[in-house]
Design a protein around this nucleic acid. Structure first.
Lengths: 214, 214
DNA sequence: AGGATAACCAAACGATCGTTTCATTTCGCA
DNA sequence: TGCGAAATGAAACGATCGTTTGGTTATCCT
């Protein structure tokens, strides 16, 4: 795992190529020429082509899972949890757009390595348990199947890679809020007007935790 | 365009291979051996590998567009149009699962051939115009951006290829109804109770609507 | 029955792929 | 300044890919 900036150039070039042409259709020469070196020289940084894919994809995958883990440990009301989880998802998609797109196209699809499948499943389970909280508390009275509901939300979010582009006219926060209004309105059905944003506490103040892996 | 049944075997084998391994990672030998012939013999049926991809994908893409076109020409209320469009989408995904999955993974992603892009855009525009009808009539009062709302719905539907499997415990009709309830509830927000099915005219003898919880 | 044509076999081609090898340059640091 | 390691150049490898070619077998039609 080299550190210097050249490594970042390689990963960025790989991510961009993977996103536009797909992993299998991208050759190491595509990546090498994009950073101005010979394809054989890439092997000073990697052991195989797959290393590039995993390096591209690891960051946002771990980040999005970390954020929903922390969110799940709070005792916010379910509506607010849904809103924050949606914002996290959209914001990570926005700020790591290329990497996240590669993950969704190359990992969440076909590639069934257990490492990534476990992350996908944990993320789904965490979101689903939030939905179940809302069902148990009576807030999400319209939900008949929490898993289907959760998958519908995740689908809308992940489909963003097909049409959203960072820097476009639609800002990430607006999209997240519109998704929340749409889904929470559906979840809550006809009940309180708690669907609007209420911003209980700022989003990323939860960092007193030093290192969790120790 | 040959006719006999062997052609169907080839397309089915190609579709299955494309779905599980991706188009670029699938070799013609994979397909040839699946149907029991030499890879060179495939060229009696095709002119290039891409022919197989387009043949796999054309059917459901045209079918789903045809159905929403016909729906758009009716004068049903917007809620019912949304419900029927959702059902069409899910049912086509269900009965042409492999072909549709290949389309969504290989065409709706990266491949930007104008023919398919035009179909994608027309489908999106037709659905969006349905949403706009509901906004104009006052039924979808919670919608602030019809395009984002439409893309959220399409995302949920297309993401089905990532978790739904035909023949599983969840039936296509149930999923479609749950999606409709979720999205229409969100669209209508707090207003009439028109969110429930109401089934104006049977689409294809709408199943006795599995009774849900009391 | 026989001839045309469809269907397929079998082998090979050139291109390109991921990877390896070794030589060469560049750079950090004592 | 010089030396060792990091970084890259340059070429080649075997494998595999999509495609072509030419021949062989099967099928259909009148």
């Amino acid at each position: 795992m080299p550190r210097p900036s050249r490594w970042n150039e390689i990963i960025e070039a790989a991510a961009e190529a993977f996103r536009t042409n797909g992993y299998a259709a991208t050759s190491l020469e595509d990546i090498a020429s994009a950073v101005g070196m010979w394809k054989g020289s890439l092997y000073h940084y990697i052991d195989s082509k797959e290393d590039l894919l995993f390096a591209v994809v690891r960051g946002p995958a771990e980040e999005i899972l970390k954020q929903v883990r922390e969110l799940s440990e709070t005792d916010l009301p379910p509506t607010e949890k849904i809103r924050r989880a949606t914002r996290s998802h959209v914001q990570i998609l926005n700020s790591n757009f290329v990497y996240a797109s590669v993950y969704l196209q190359e990992i969440a699809g076909r590639r069934k390595l257990p490492e990534w499948s476990a992350m996908d499943r944990e993320y789904l389970d965490l979101l689903e348990s939030i939905v179940r909280e809302g069902v148990d508390s009576g807030e999400f009275s319209a939900v008949t199947n929490p898993r289907v509901t959760t998958l519908a939300l995740i689908g809308s979010l992940n489909w963003l890679t097909h049409w959203y582009r960072p820097g476009g006219s639609l800002h990430a926060d607006e999209i997240a809020d519109q998704f929340c209004d749409l889904f929470l309105g559906g979840l809550i059905s006809r009940k309180t007007q708690a669907s609007r944003s209420q911003t209980i506490t700022p989003l990323k103040t939860t960092k007193p935790r030093a290192k969790r892996t120790a």
